[in-house]
Amino acid sequence: MLKEKGILFDVTLCVGCGSCYQACKEKNNLPQTNKDFLKDHLSNNTFTVVEQYGKMYARKLCMHCNEPSCVSVCLVGAFNKNVTGAVLYDADKCIGCRYCMQACPHKIPRYEWGTTQPRVRKCTLCIDRVKAGKISACSEACPTEATLFGDMDQLVAVAKKRLKDDPEKYYQQIYGLEEAGGGHVLVLSPVPFEQLGYTSKLSKEPMPAFTMRAMEKIPPVVAVGGVFLSGMYWLTKRKNQIANEEKKTTNGNKEI
């Protein structure tokens, strides 16, 4: 049985070499999209980027949420949460409504706008490599261990230990542990995360919960509505009938 895998990215260790960016391109057979990898952005041909903020570098990629919005909103179930923790996409099911792109709290999914058979594209947490017992391409390529790949419980322990051992060095938060219900990509940083372009102010509640609160009212609405409408139909019909009968009798009386 596979344990749930994840990635821990530590901004303090990242030197901005771009090895992860390059390894991701090669592993996924993606064409080059920008000569300067630091100026590139996520696209249908780029699943991870390294962004520069002064002397700091921040990686962006799919956060592989525990309760992913994309999985919950996709009407045909083209997204699913794998046992390894990866959030995966099945192009054969997809109808192309793009609700996943609209709903993602981290704004990650990208679309192949240029083709007539477009797919949604994003990081797969190297599912094929993981199934073969290897670690993700980006973490294998990282020369400074800024990107770690491993079992989720171990990664969380490592992250907590770093925050505790070096409280001066780190902003005391593990980004991705609780944001939008948490996920499988954790980030450590010396500064607040919004300064590095991470989506801040996300609720700790998983995003699908916002929808579920409305969706769970559907069965009672249908039940109560159905009974109410049938009742009203019967009632008003009966009322009209009685009114008509009364009319007839009074008319008759007058004539007599």
Binding site: S72, V73, C74, L75, V76, G77, Y99, P208, T211, A214
Partner: peptide, 9 residues
């Protein structure tokens, strides 16, 4: 293909 958790569905 059903996903009953989806509003879109």
């Amino acid at each position: 293909m059903w996903n009953i958790h989806s509003v879109m569905f």
